[in-house]
Simulated scan of single mutants.
Amino acid sequence: MLVTKRMKNWMTVIGGLFALTAFLSGCTDSVASNGMQAPPPQALPVFAVHPAEAATNDEYTASLEGTRNVDIRPQVDGYLVRIYQDEGAFVHKGQPLFQIDDKVYQSQLDNAKANLLSAKAAQENAQINVNKLTPLVSGGVVSDVQLKTAQASLDAAKAGVAQAEALVTSAQINVGYTTVAAPVDGYLGRIPFKTGSLVGKNDAQALTVLSQVDEVYAYFSMSEKQFLDFKNRYKGATVEEKLRQIPPVQLVLADGSVYAQTGKVETVEGQFDRTLGSIPFRVTFPNPNGLLRSGNTGRVRIPGPQSSVLVVPQESTFEMQDKVLAFTVGDSNKVAMRPLTVSGRSGNYYLVSGGLKDGDKVVYTGLDRLKDGAVIVPQVISLDSLLKASPL
């Protein structure tokens, strides 16, 4: 009887353990099952693409230069004793920039002036002899040979005076050269020399470069095909006439902003660069506030004709391996990455010539949270409303 009770107790304990294990296992399975549930689809804005009238802008990489970039070089040798202006300063024509020690040249000037005084004294003495002999020759007291000799001495004295005057002028010029002044208005570049440096007119390196930038030149190049397109696009019998037909162009700066002033394409070189296979153009931009400097880079944007093209906001695209892509929405609201063929830009939009067709649905924003094949909940918006808020 005792054995039977013990067996019943053990059976009860074992049954309880099985029940507890089953309960804990069920809880674990429930947590695991809940943890593996997929998140709900994202709700993202989607628009349908359609053609719109847009101007196709052609852009060319450009480098900027001042209308005049002048190397400032010394005309005499000597030590720099003063640098009047700092690098980057705006200076006016005639304003002093550098001072070279003038002691040697001032001494040469003083010596030249003394020689001039001596030459003038010799000329005066020779003139006295001529004046003295002239009446004596007329009276037959002395021969005319003596008068001719005296006249020759006077002529030599006059030549000596002229030579001395030239030496004085040369010495004065050299003294003037010791003050190096600005030949034009403009901005100073880097100054590689310091006070006490020995400088000379045969130095390979200039004292500085002075850039006149009230206007700037933007140089860009066209390939042979682009040049032929340019000639076919604009009316005119000559290249000069075609240049006059190009509308005002824009300058896109290195940070992507557009320079406030428009420019004019003025000249094109006479021949192609055989190495690069391109021909350079020059655009002139006003620069009244001096915001542009020599050495800047940017892109010259030439507006093209209006045409009907598919447009996609740039914020609806992303780049991968030098390709521009967008997410399109297909069946079952699944998204797919699609590469785009971009033919140009207009405002904040890409002009798309391939990769999309009229009516295709494109995800507007939230691309950083998407993967190829993901399912979304489309929130349809109108492309026209986007174009109205941010025109082409």
Rank of each mutant, 00 (worst) to 15 (best):
M1A: 14
V3C: 13
V3L: 08
R6L: 15
M7D: 13
K8F: 14
I14T: 11
A19C: 10
A19K: 07
L20Q: 06
A38V: 07
P39V: 09
P39T: 09
Q42W: 06
A43W: 03
P45C: 11
F47G: 11
E53P: 14
T61R: 15
D71T: 07
R73M: 04
Q75T: 00
I83M: 03
Y84N: 14
V91L: 03
D102L: 08
A114V: 10
L116Q: 07
L117G: 10
A122E: 03
E124K: 15
A126E: 03
N129F: 00
N129Y: 11
T134Q: 12
T134A: 10
D144C: 10
A150S: 12
S153H: 12
L154I: 04
A164K: 02
E165S: 05
A166W: 12
A166S: 09
T169K: 15
S170Y: 03
Q172T: 05
I173T: 11
Y177G: 04
Y177W: 02
Y177S: 01
A182M: 03
V184Q: 02
L188M: 08
L188Y: 06
I191Q: 08
F193N: 04
F193T: 01
K201V: 03
L210D: 04
D214G: 06
F220P: 04
F220L: 08
F227R: 01
L228A: 12
R233Q: 08
K235Y: 05
A237G: 14
E241L: 09
E241F: 03
E241K: 04
R244S: 10
I246T: 10
P247Y: 02
P247W: 01
V252I: 09
L253G: 04
A254I: 11
D255E: 06
S257V: 00
V258F: 07
Y259G: 03
Y259W: 00
K264N: 08
V265N: 01
V268S: 09
Q271L: 01
F272I: 02
R274A: 15
P280T: 08
V283M: 03
T284E: 04
L291N: 11
L292R: 05
L292Q: 08
L292H: 09
P305G: 15
S307P: 00
S308H: 01
V309F: 09
V311P: 05
F318G: 10
E319L: 14
M320K: 05
Q321P: 15
K323F: 04
V324E: 13
L325C: 11
A326V: 02
A326Q: 06
N333Y: 08
V335Y: 00
V335S: 01
A336D: 00
L340C: 10
V342R: 00
G347P: 07
G347T: 02
N348K: 02
Y349Q: 00
S353K: 13
G354K: 05
D358H: 13
L367E: 00
D368P: 12
D368G: 13
K371M: 06
A374V: 09
V375W: 00
V375N: 08
S382G: 12
S385F: 06
L386D: 02
L387C: 09
A389V: 04
S390M: 05
P391G: 11
